[in-house]
Simulated scan of single mutants.
Amino acid sequence: MIKVNHIYIFLGLTLLFFSCKSEEKNETSTTKTESKIVLEDRFQYLLDYPVDAAGFPRSMSLDPQEIHKVPSKDWTSGFFPGNLWLIYKLTEEESFKTKAMEWTALMEDQKYNAGTHDMGFKIYCSFGEGYEITKNEDYKKVILESAQTLSTRYNDKVGSLRSWDFNKDIWDFPVIVDNMMNLELLFVATQMSGDSSYHKIAVNHANTTLKNHVRPDHSIFHVVDYDPVSGKVNDKYTHQGFSTESSWARGQSWGIYGFTMAYRFTKNPDYLAQAEATAKFFMEHPNLPDDGIPYWDFDDPAIPNAQRDASAAAVAASAVLELFTITKKQVYLDYANKVLASLNSEEYLLDASIQAPFILKHSTGNWPKKDEMDEPIVYADYYFLEALIRQKDL
């Protein structure tokens, strides 16, 4: 079992942060104790989940209860090993480190998978987290080999890494805002190797995204399609949002996080300015609910009866906590505290009785395809845990 003293020390610290809004939230000591117990149980379920090379947990339907499993080639596969590494950081419990190493080893086959742009999600969230903790040189080699593989998707005319390979009858060279998240792998690869080519690719990609994905109100298009020969923009879309001109919530959070991270490695003030402008759009949007957890798309006409997206909230919370460390602006800390208090509650924590390797409920995966609707999804847990660590480190 998890060492209870480690979990409670951690939760005591995070709940101290949450208590800054306790009068508004009207939290009781009973509610806090219940959330401690539920979160402890959720961690235990992740630890107990059997290692399976073909069964990385991605999401879960609740009625009926069924865990959706994927192989390592799926873009979400790296998050579950990452979750175990993050829980080890929070608890210092060796059993999570041991299990994280077992799952991470199953990701190594992806280091040569040039058919995906999601190398950062897959490798940096698993091997990257592991390397930070262990300094294992074999992990470093995998990270560098993966960065080299990812670099093969770069087109210098476009100035970006290609995102998807599907829908070739519609798109020539699609680039999605999510791809900003994969740049961290390249930035780190330059730091590890001294090879500046990775850094240059990441900067060029960020600059192209900054130029073409951002609307005048600082919301962000999901997809920009380019002519790979001339580099010119063909068209712009919001593929996973309600409509082309709508603001898909998770896309906005990818943008906030991606530009903040790019600023960390480059100190380019344009990246910081864009991260703050999109964060302002997100946090001050009139359709953002009081608990800080957005609807899956800010422009869904079904609001207030539209589905929420806890994953978008978790990504945004983690991102603005980094913005707070950079800018010291209280608005970022206030929003992150509110979101984490909301997520660490009965409304969003998966019930302790559900024996599954997930923490949060109420995430929305792909609404247009009606896929992973209002479900626990593994990447929501990853950014929730990362945000808790960033909050604790303050």
Rank of each mutant, 00 (worst) to 15 (best):
R215C: 12
F259H: 06
P301F: 07
T134K: 13
W75R: 02
L385D: 08
S197F: 10
P71R: 05
Y295I: 02
S219K: 07
A273M: 08
W164V: 03
K328L: 04
L183G: 03
F173Y: 14
L349R: 00
S230G: 03
M192E: 15
F80L: 02
L385M: 04
V223A: 00
G12T: 02
A341S: 14
V315Y: 14
F17D: 13
D172Y: 09
D74Q: 11
L288H: 12
L106H: 02
L288T: 14
L13F: 06
L394I: 15
L388E: 10
Y383I: 02
L39T: 12
D300V: 05
A316T: 00
H117W: 09
Q274A: 07
N136W: 01
E102F: 04
K232Y: 08
Q307G: 15
W171Y: 15
G258N: 02
S19G: 07
K97H: 09
E94C: 02
L144Y: 05
A279R: 02
Q252K: 01
Y154R: 12
S363K: 01
G12N: 13
D48R: 07
F242A: 03
Y348S: 02
T152A: 04
C20P: 03
T152P: 02
T91F: 05
K73Q: 09
N182P: 05
E34V: 14
W75P: 01
I67M: 07
I359C: 01
M261V: 15
A279E: 04
L272C: 08
I256Q: 13
V214T: 08
Y348M: 00
N5V: 12
R390N: 11
F265D: 04
Y226T: 04
E34M: 13
Q307F: 13
A352N: 12
D172G: 06
L84I: 05
F43R: 07
G231E: 05
D297S: 12
W367Q: 11
T104I: 09
S163V: 10
A279T: 13
F324G: 11
Y257F: 15
L62D: 01
P228V: 04
N83Y: 03
S197H: 11
D165G: 06
M192I: 14
T260K: 03
W85K: 10
D217R: 08
I201Y: 15
M101W: 09
Y139V: 15
E245S: 09
F298H: 01
G258M: 03
H117M: 08
L321M: 14
D41P: 04
P357V: 01
R162Q: 13
L394R: 08
L394M: 15
D48P: 13
E347S: 10
D109E: 08
E145S: 06
I303Q: 01
F17L: 10
V38H: 05
K69H: 13
D165E: 11
S126W: 10
S243W: 04
T149Y: 02
V223P: 00
T260E: 01
P368A: 07
V315W: 14
M60E: 09
Y383Q: 07
D297V: 09
I201R: 15
T190E: 15
L388Q: 14
K69M: 07
Y348I: 01
F43A: 09
T209M: 15
F166P: 06
F324P: 11
F282Q: 13
